[in-house]
Nucleic acid binder design. Structure first.
Length: 423
RNA sequence: CGGGGUGUCGUAUACCGGUAGUACGUCUGCUUUGGGAGCAGAUAGACGGAGUUCAAUUCUCCGCACCCCGACCA
């Protein structure tokens, strides 16, 4: 992509009403636009990252047998009344609206109910189980207080996976598979080393749920981490009884701020029983389906990556989700030879399938380089007089700041390796 | 939802019951070109509605929006 054609622009200053680092940088770099508190539009660069995060998640969901689908945002009030999750007394963060034809609808806060009902059309025998189904879909939650930029929005993109099993063993296997898939996802997104499986409140369905908490000063949660074992406990369930159950001692725990990157739940038969999702077992008996649900906030992940991986110059995208792999920056834009060289290189790289952002704008070096640092593409290739003389490409890696001279072949090999390593 | 705070060009600010100014940014042109350069010109603002007043950005009231702390957060 030629940067001169990119409709978004960078800015030197963040809006005065943004204090969250993720929102400041994302807005300054033109990745997102704030519509109102907790509601953000995703502009081309932000959208590219979002799509790539989605792709990493999709691959891992597919790898465990997940079947992708997409459900509606508008919800049937009657359905939710059957599980007692429509009443404002029970669930207070619905966006509800009147239907012109009479009645009422609401925007989905989650999708256990509709999917369970859908499954009643398709699951009737133990032979139909197990099933994993997932989607990427906007969720709407009427939060009392939106904050932390894109990490706590009223409208946000979420991947939600649901599991349906015949037996407890089958369910445990599904749960374990999802848990492992989540670990791989956070690993691939570059935050595996600072993301911990954390015991948290299980809600009404089970004693505990497991959260994937990413350490960050911007975190809203407090977790207690046993650094030796890597086991963590959310403050909300930190009791002596819990610690005893987990074999942890208070003395070895350190308090850390963290952001919830994902959460996985055992749902038991709570939904299948109230919505009549049953199957006939081999012996002819009717049984409720055992369910689980597993969520990752995709748009929140964008914020987590900015919060945890950026530096004082700007964002630093991991290769797995970067909007482009290479930022091609000719630094003497009034030099025809330099620009011709850069043009040709841009064409070659593009033809070779390398996603390149080409800064063909007529600006001075300082501005281009500052923008490149802000946008955070993994490899920056600077074209200047030196390049013309040596034919070597001056590559700087955003994460390490390391600069080295490489050949075109080496640059291609790097992008390919990055592609492979991170999928 | 409880508490606190803020609304003046995009940002930071100034002044004031009487024509709203400055800096930076942004835009245009020229010069310049390896880390946000220079010159010239231009653009753009009082959150909204009532009220008081000859006159309101300024005072009063009512809204609205945004931010922060807490609570909440399948």
């Amino acid at each position: 992509m030629r940067q001169s054609k990119l409709f978004t622009k960078t800015r030197k200053e963040a809006p005065k009403d943004e204090t969250a680092k993720n929102a400041e940088l994302l807005i300054r770099a033109g990745f997102v636009h704030k519509e109102m508190a907790g509601v953000y539009s995703y502009l081309p660069l932000g959208h590219r990252v979002l799509k790539r995060i989605e792709q990493v998640v999709r691959e891992e969901m597919d790898a465990i047998g997940g079947q992708e689908m997409v459900m509606t945002a508008l919800q049937d009030k009657e359905l939710w009344a059957r599980t007692d999750r429509w009443d404002d007394e029970k669930v207070d963060n619905w966006f509800k609206t009147a239907l012109k034809s009479g009645g009422e609808t609401g925007l989905a806060i989650t999708h256990e109910e509709p999917l369970t009902r859908i499954m009643t059309d398709h699951i009737s025998s133990y032979r139909d189980l197990p099933v994993f189904a997932y989607q990427f879909q906007n969720k709407f939650r009427n939060e009392m207080r939106a904050k932390s930029g894109v990490m706590r929005g009223r409208e946000f993109l979420m991947k939600d996976l649901y599991s349906f099993a015949a037996t407890e063993e089958q369910h445990e296997a599904q749960y374990a598979a999802a848990r492992e898939a989540y670990k791989r996802i956070f690993e691939r997104l570059g935050i595996g080393d600072r993301t911990y499986v954390t015991f948290a409140s299980g809600g009404v369905f089970s004693e505990f749920s497991e959260e994937f908490q990413t350490l960050s000063e911007a975190g809203e949660d407090l977790i207690y981490l046993d650094e030796k074992t890597g086991i963590a406990v959310n403050k909300e369930v930190l009791t002596d009884a819990t610690l005893a159950k987990l074999g942890l001692s208070r003395d070895s725990l350190v308090e850390k701020k963290a952001i919830e990157a994902g959460n996985i739940f055992h749902l038991g038969t709570r939904f299948s029983e109230s919505l009549g999702l049953t199957y006939t077992d081999a012996d002819g008996s009717k049984k409720p389906v055992i369910m689980g649900s597993y969520g990752i906030g995709i748009s929140r992940m964008l914020g987590i990556l900015v919060e945890t991986l950026s530096d004082d110059k700007g964002m630093v995208w991991p290769e797995s989700v970067a909007p482009f792999m290479v930022h091609l920056v000719p630094v003497i834009s009034n030099d025809e030879t330099v620009m011709a060289y850069a043009d040709a290189l841009y064409d070659d790289l593009t033809k070779a399938g390398v996603p390149v952002l080409y800064d063909d704008r007529d600006l001075r070096a300082g501005e281009k380089l500052a923008d490149a640092d802000l946008i955070g593409i993994p490899a920056r290739v600077v074209i200047g007089k030196k390049t013309l003389e040596t034919g070597q490409l001056e590559s700087t890696y955003r994460r390490t700041g390391e600069t080295k001279l490489v050949s075109r072949e080496e640059l291609l090999a790097y992008t390919k390796a990055a592609e492979q390593h991170h999928g």
